[in-house]
Nucleic acid binder design. Structure first.
Lengths: 352, 352
DNA sequence: GCCGTTGCTGCAATCGATTGCAAAAGGTAG
DNA sequence: CTACCTTTTGCAATCGATTGCAGCAACGGC
């Protein structure tokens, strides 16, 4: 049922119907009642597409996350959706799947859909497309990860602080043979967590060995592989920092499989306090992010943009250390080799 | 930049430009090159809204999940998104937040957006809206939960089987004082898991006591509360079946807090093999669902509908039992009261 | 040389709702 | 009674792309 059909049926013009719906005060009370009754009776709904075309706006916002399966991003997406749906906006949520191509594709698609703004976690892809969208006046809000595009809003974590908290916790427990599994260089989160960690260690006079520096892709499988490699070193680390929750799951698998005891043989600390971190054996010490705030703040920045703000705003959120039981003081072993050879023997042998 | 502006600049008609983009074979090679070069240069993108209006279709599909934070649903959503984006479709993902109102609101919104179909997990709300959409010819595909609307496609789990697997596992370990935390009656998942469980116990001559039957709302908090109540009974259960992953997290909290040892004092089995279930202490015995299949099959059913199928199809997926370490044989205590009083003394006292 | 065909391009209508402007009706003041 | 204002409704253009139909040119066959 279209506006015109309804108008014909009521013997009124389409304009009147349209006004009765969107600006009721302009229509005589009696007419209005009659129209609304008919609308109700026929279940008429304005065609959102036609409306958007005419109004030149869509009441839709685009969200691109790099992995919808990752609870961090699904939580952020949910927070955004909740915020904007209260205002009658809807979300087109895209999953870039950590792929730059898919990201570029999603951006094009959202642009075609004429969304009012795009909130996205940069996946390292197409800065050109971003630049063009920005030039066209599309509000762009980055979450979690930063492209190097100037002038866009962003909600970020103080990754260096997070990495420092992790490093200092491990150093404080006496660890010196410390390894990291970080993310891709092309992502700010990957870079900053690595550099922040390196620097914090350096401040304490500890150098982060290349051998102990693994670069994954923030997905489970790479966490598994990286950790497996570290375990095969002649002098495996006594402590491990894993830079996101997905890779942490992989690390956990690798450690289980190798029969390594946490924290007795290796201390494990990682990023992002997923809900289950506290139920794991052992409960995980982690660097927590204010996950829902990412979404809420991003939505907020979006509204401001819509209401005329033109100056870019960057909000930095703070991580915090949550101490549980996956980190322990380094075992006072006679020599570095002990732990390694103990592992080879497997199981509980490393008890000392 | 619009089609008309571009046309004027090139001294061609809009029709030719349009054809050069969407049906290149109809345009002379030379003209086509010239047009495509200009398109590239100006970064012209067809206005998706106008295109949709004219074509009378949107290349958009709506997805409503009942809780985007729940890894089950985010995984399903991702699977759907991945499937349809390969075909140039985009997803509008809505979160009903387990609220019937929000669900109705989302349905209206998707209808206005003229999506090509809606894949949704019924939240118990507005069957009227669903019925109207169905009457209008909107492809409707239900996942996980079933409304009582006839004629719609659905991808469901064999919940009764899942519940039976859980019951038989517990029975096989000798448990008789068995409790359940299930979901709302208004949801098929809640009902079927409860009834299936009850029936499976009955088959073994065990009755599911009212005292042992808790109805939650599939969210973490209700799992916590229900479990806490069960623990305060004079004769607490020796085994507990929790009917979804969110409530299971709550149950875990409650058990931890009460210092109850799993599985020594209580055996725990629950639904949905979230990735972390195997890292928990103890690794959780669960009923696994083929999560990604839900999304893939739903997308498949959607395509079929688009391509003309009119007969409703219901696909039932099978759960499976994954045995880990959260269930143990019932402790051969002299009398039923022992366990209860042991708990009151707290901690490891119940070791017997 | 004429006609039919093929290939390319343009004209103009169309999708459905919105909105500036104008017309008609009713009311009030001078 | 006229002039003017207010309220209510309708007319018609508009948003931007698509597409059926027609026009035109070039070419080949007879």
């Amino acid at each position: 049922m279209t506006l015109i059909e309804l108008a014909r049926e009521l013997g009124l013009s389409p304009s009147t119907i349209s006004r009765a719906i969107s600006r009721p005060d302009l229509v005589a009370a009696e007419t209005r009642e009659r129209i609304l009754a008919a609308v109700e009776a026929h279940g008429y709904r304005p065609n959102g597409i036609a409306r958007s075309l005419r109004r030149g706006e869509s009441n839709t916002i685009g969200v691109i996350v790099s992995d919808l399966k990752n609870p961090f991003y699904s939580t952020v997406a949910k927070a955004i959706e909740n915020q904007v749906s209260d205002h009658g906006y809807s979300c087109v949520i895209c999953d870039a799947d950590e792929s730059a191509e898919k990201e570029a594709h999603a951006l094009e698609l959202l642009a075609q859909l004429k969304v009012r703004g795009i909130i996205h976690a940069f996946t390292g892809g197409d800065v050109d497309t971003l630049r063009r969208l920005q030039a066209e006046g599309m509000p762009l809000i980055e979450i979690d990860r930063r492209s190097d595009l100037p002038g866009v809003d962003a909600v970020l974590l103080d990754n260096a602080l997070g990495a420092r908290l992790a490093a200092e916790h491990l150093l404080g427990l006496g660890h010196r043979r410390i390894a990291i599994v970080s993310g891709p260089e092309r992502l700010t989160t990957g870079r900053q967590r690595l550099e922040g960690f390196r620097k914090a260690l350096a401040n304490a006079g500890v150098t982060l060995d290349d051998e102990y520096t693994e670069i994954g892709d923030f997905r489970e499988a790479s966490g598994y592989q990286a950790t497996s490699r570290l375990l095969q070193l002649d002098a495996p680390p006594t402590a491990l920092f894993v830079a996101n929750n997905e890779m942490m799951a992989g690390a956990l698998s690798a450690l289980r499989e190798a029969g390594v005891n946490i924290p007795r043989q290796i201390s494990l600390i990682s990023f992002d306090d997923v809900r289950w971190a506290k139920y794991v054996d052992p409960p995980l010490t982690i660097i927590a992010q204010p996950t829902e705030q990412f979404g809420a703040v991003a939505a907020e920045l979006f509204w401001e943009r819509l209401h005329g703000r033109t100056e870019p705003v960057v909000r930095i959120l703070s991580p915090s250390l949550v101490v549980r039981e996956s980190c322990a003081p380094v075992t006072p072993a006679p020599a570095g080799e002990v732990a390694a050879s103990a592992w080879r023997r497997g199981g509980d042998a490393g008890k000392v």
